[in-house]
Design a binder for these strands. Structure first.
Length: 298
RNA sequence: GCCGUGGUAGCUCAGGUAGCAGAGCGCUUCUCUGAAAAAGAAGAGGUGGUCGGCGCACAUCCGACCCACGGCA
């Protein structure tokens, strides 16, 4: 197994300190970092996403940051394509890829080689389907693809519409999930914090972001042509700061609601991560170093 | 002191001609096939301010008291 390619995954909820940790580890283990964050891919979204600064990178190359315009759609498939490319590139340099981030879905798709049905989003079709009620959508899907209808969340319009999109455009049922061999083995390290600590970290970070000009960042994104609707879509900071700028919330309410929202998000992330038994939860940098050391020299 | 209004879930409150106690938020748990910071689901929480009365039965009707808020003195 010595020649098998290896990748190190570092994941955890927001505000748990992944960025800091990963730069240190990458430096130590001759690594380069691929960000697995669904919002840090966008240009101009820096403070609100907690993107590493040039200085914080300490010379460690980072991939998958600023690869998309916030005016355009970006999704898992694009992420996978770019991440696979970055991984190759890092191997060619004889370095170790560190996949670091909090977007579980993105990580899963890269590391487990989940292949997503090759049917491009069709916005016109989606718009049309959106007019139907959720039970209607489910009924149609049940007819066209009973298998998928059987395991889908039948209350979730977004899922139903995508399933129908696949069926209608490809003229065949949604294929069952089949993980493919990604061509490398992975070590999963999770950064965990107890709830109280995480809440405090989130709070501190939120104040810091406001001081650093988060509101101005959102204003400038809007000035550069990103619609309010789009900004709301990004969620968390971008959603609530937008509401504040537009006068729908006062500053105090914004902070309060945003804090709660981020806490919820962190919890959702943990729900995702918890079920993955491959993750080795580490306490500190030392624990991470020991684990990586052992893994790389196996 | 008098008058009025209110006291129902952790919070904000619905309802109530007596018949198994509700919502939103929060909390807990969960789902995830091209939006994933998105989109969804489930669950746990109540001696209905206190005491007494009438009733087969009271959160609901009657009385007293306590507490909060507003007005008058």
């Amino acid at each position: 197994m010595k020649n098998l390619k290896k990748i190190i995954v570092i994941l955890g909820p927001t505000a748990s300190g992944k960025t800091d940790l990963s730069v240190g580890l990458a430096k130590k283990f001759n690594g380069e970092i691929i960000s697995a964050d669904s919002r840090q891919v966008y240009k101009g979204m820096n403070i609100g996403t907690g993107k590493v600064t040039k200085k914080e990178m300490q010379g460690v190359p980072h991939y998958l940051l600023d690869v998309a315009s916030p005016k355009k759609r970006f999704d898992v498939v694009q992420f996978k394509k770019l991440a696979d490319k970055a991984i190759d590139k890092i191997y060619k340099k004889k370095k170790v890829p560190f996949l670091v981030g909090g977007t579980g879905f993105y990580i899963q798709v890269v590391v487990d080689g989940i292949s997503i049905p090759n049917v491009k989003p069709d916005l016109t079709l989606r718009k049309k389907l959106e007019k139907k009620t959720v039970p209607e959508l489910y009924k149609i899907l049940s007819k066209l693809d009973p298998r998928r209808a059987g395991d889908i969340d039948k209350n979730n319009p977004r899922r139903l519409i995508r399933a129908l999109e696949i069926v209608l455009k490809s003229k065949r049922p949604v294929p069952p999930i089949q993980p493919e061999n990604p061509g490398f083995s992975s070590l999963y390290l999770g950064v965990k914090r107890d709830t109280k600590t995480l809440q405090k970290l989130i709070e501190k970070r939120l104040i810091k972001r406001l001081d650093e000009g988060m509101v101005e960042e959102v204003e400038s994104l809007h000035k550069s042509g990103v619609s309010w609707k789009r900004l709301e879509e990004f969620g968390l900071e971008y959603r609530y700061v937008t509401r504040y700028i537009r006068g729908k919330l006062d500053r105090e309410e914004m902070i309060k609601q945003l804090q709660k929202e981020i806490e919820h998000y962190a919890k959702r992330q943990m729900t995702w991560f918890k079920k993955d038994k491959r993750i080795k939860w580490i306490k500190d940098k030392k624990g991470a170093i020991t684990a990586i050391d052992k893994y790389l020299n196996k």
